[in-house]
Amino acid sequence: MQRIVKRVALLALSVIVSGCSLGKSDTFIFTADLPPNFYYRASAVYVPAKGETCTVPGGKNTHVGFNRHWRKEYKPDSEIALYRTVSGCPMVISKVKLEINAVYGDDWGDIGGDNASVMIYEVLPADYKREFSVEGESGFYGQCQFLFRTSGGKRRIVKILDCKGIDAKGVLARGRPGVAYTLDQLPGKTVKLKIKLVEEEMPAIKDTWVKVPNGWKRCMGDNFEDQYAFCYGDYKRFSSFMMPDGKQCTIYPGCTE
């Protein structure tokens, strides 16, 4: 009898520690509304639950990945657990780190990337808490833009992805897209990231391209082998360059003048 009572007590304790109760979800859904050829990769990060003094050796298995192999298999919806037990240590989610990847060519390296995050706290100031719709969904927003430059001896175009947070009205924030919730807000809910792509691309490095009526022309620099090739006021000598698909061009993005 004592053994049964002890096992019931331990079960009850594990429920309390995990923060869950019967009939209550202990997961939430993260999803993303992204432009074409954009994909996200997520890593849910866990720390010891409040009041716990246990540790996990080397932090092993305290991160859970989603869409790790997004090139082969991509799922826009990720069901993320709020609580886990790792090496006997009760843990709670603290954040979701997001990697935004944008594919712009066929080569393996033709990818631009940037970051976003979902932070999760025990308590937040009342005016900082995000609300959920009656359907149980809450969103945050970002705006991404491609920055182009040339690379290598062939002056091949490569692109960098630059993402900033924006509010629902499109006003730019200072940092990367991000949002914060309290732990008790998330069970059974959906958090959605919505990314808008700016149509116009811009040079990644100042004073290397010159704006012309129908695009951008690449400054020659000292010679074609000059990897930096700053303009330095020379707006008469320009070079050709290679597009990601191998095409030789003299103006970006239209290729030919």
Rank of each mutant, 00 (worst) to 15 (best):
D110E: 08
D110M: 08
D110N: 10
I111Q: 07
I111F: 06
I111R: 11
I111C: 06
I111A: 07
G112V: 07
G112C: 07
G113K: 07
G113M: 09
G113T: 11
G113A: 11
G113H: 05
D114M: 00
D114R: 01
D114H: 01
N115Y: 13
N115D: 14
N115L: 14
A116P: 01
A116E: 05
A116V: 04
S117Y: 12
V118W: 00
V118E: 04
V118I: 15
V118M: 07
V118D: 06
M119F: 12
M119S: 15
M119N: 14
M119G: 13
I120A: 05
I120E: 06
I120M: 05
I120F: 05
I120R: 03
I120Q: 05
Y121A: 11
Y121W: 08
Y121S: 10
Y121C: 01
E122Y: 06
E122N: 10
E122L: 06
E122W: 02
E122S: 11
V123A: 03
V123K: 09
L124F: 03
L124D: 02
P125L: 00
P125Q: 00
P125S: 01
P125G: 02
A126L: 11
A126Y: 03
A126N: 09
D127W: 04
D127M: 09
D127I: 07
Y128D: 14
Y128S: 15
Y128I: 10
Y128G: 10
Y128E: 15
K129W: 00
K129N: 03
K129M: 13
K129A: 11
R130H: 10
R130V: 08
R130T: 08
R130K: 14
E131N: 12
E131D: 12
E131Q: 14
E131V: 14
E131Y: 05
E131H: 11
E131L: 15
F132S: 04
F132N: 06
F132R: 07
S133A: 01
S133W: 00
S133T: 15
S133P: 02
S133K: 03
S133Q: 03
V134A: 15
V134I: 09
E135N: 14
E135D: 15
E135K: 13
E135R: 12
E135M: 10
E135L: 11
G136W: 05
G136D: 05
G136Q: 06
G136F: 05
G136K: 09
E137M: 10
E137H: 06
E137K: 13
S138C: 07
S138G: 10
S138A: 15
S138Q: 04
G139P: 00
G139W: 00
G139L: 09
G139A: 15
G139F: 02
G139Q: 10
G139M: 11
G139K: 08
F140G: 02
F140C: 04
F140I: 06
F140A: 05
F140R: 01
Y141M: 02
Y141Q: 01
Y141D: 00
Y141E: 00
Y141S: 01
G142F: 08
G142I: 09
G142S: 08
G142C: 10
G142V: 09
G142N: 05
Q143D: 11
Q143A: 13
Q143W: 02
Q143I: 12
Q143F: 05
C144I: 01
Q145K: 14
Q145H: 04
Q145N: 11
Q145W: 00
Q145Y: 01
Q145P: 07
F146E: 06
F146C: 11
F146H: 13
F146P: 14
F146Q: 09
F146K: 12
L147R: 13
L147G: 12
L147S: 12
L147V: 02
